[in-house]
Amino acid sequence: MKKLKLLVLAVLPIPAFFFSLVIGQFDIPPLTVYEIFFTKLFNPLISSPWPPAYEVVVWNIRLPRVLLALLVGASLSVSGTALQGLFRNPLVSPYILGLSWGANFGVALSLLIPLPFSPQFMAFSFGLLAVFLAYSIAKVRGETPVISLVLAGVIVSAFFTALQYIAKFFLDPQALQGLVYWMMGGFYLAHWDDVMVTCIPIIFSVVMLSLMSWRINVLSMGDAEAKMMGLNTELNKVVIIVLATVMAAVAVSVVGTIGWVGLIIPHLVRMAVGPDHRKLIPLSATVGAAFLLVADDLARSITTYELPVGILTTLSGVPFFVYLLKKTKGRSWS
């Protein structure tokens, strides 16, 4: 029974994937969609018997979008799981160390002054800069206590929020709208290029963190215990933080700040399979991927307009957290 549960969670993205391929504004019969998909997959050079628009929709529009949603979902939730385990704090998400606000400021800056870098690059580098700042502020005598790290994240977030408001003030309304849309996050601009750029760092980080998952188990027992077991705590912490941050920053830089995925999914998976990170990390990758994919399906099919998916994930995340808070009666998770 328990094995079955693990199996179901592990293969969740596969039905989600095939379900999502047939969803969209453009009307194509579902069977034709699969026909196009498998034909193109196994025989890419075949001359298509179906209208060219069909092929573009399935292969160049839906497929990259679906893959990107899977990658970003996996990235945000694995990053969240690793950081929550590391900091032994249920409130930690990839954004808690200032990543999202740093990235937002990076985008605002790139809209404000013409720079030779793309907004994506600016988001990535300012996201990393913010986390680096938070980490250096929190570092006391070669150690980074959890509470000071969380506080440092708040400080850095506040700092970049202020900077971003300055940038916003000088932006003209049209550019400002672009920034707002970016901040809410969405997959509507997904291209193969985005999939190519994000897949290597995200897959690499997911694999690395899965391999390091027993170390997270040890670290989650507390610094003193981990040291007693002979683990170089600072080195392991840094490596895990860097991996978790880079993968989240890559995701954020391509699709904007999609909220709450990195917070809900780790909790959900932990409730389902328990606190062992050797199961937690890979399963939060699959569940997170499937969750974000389905959220994006909703975002693009509810209306003729494109809803930013970040709104949906946040809206579904809030009641979940209220439930969690009531159920645990405010006690911290242990």
């Binding site: 969209g24 504004q25 628009a53 929709v57 509507y188 693009r300 307009y305 494109e306």
Partner: peptide, 8 residues
């Protein structure tokens, strides 16, 4: 803001 599928 619409989806690319809508435009197609």
């Amino acid at each position: 803001t619409v989806s690319i599928e809508q435009i197609i």
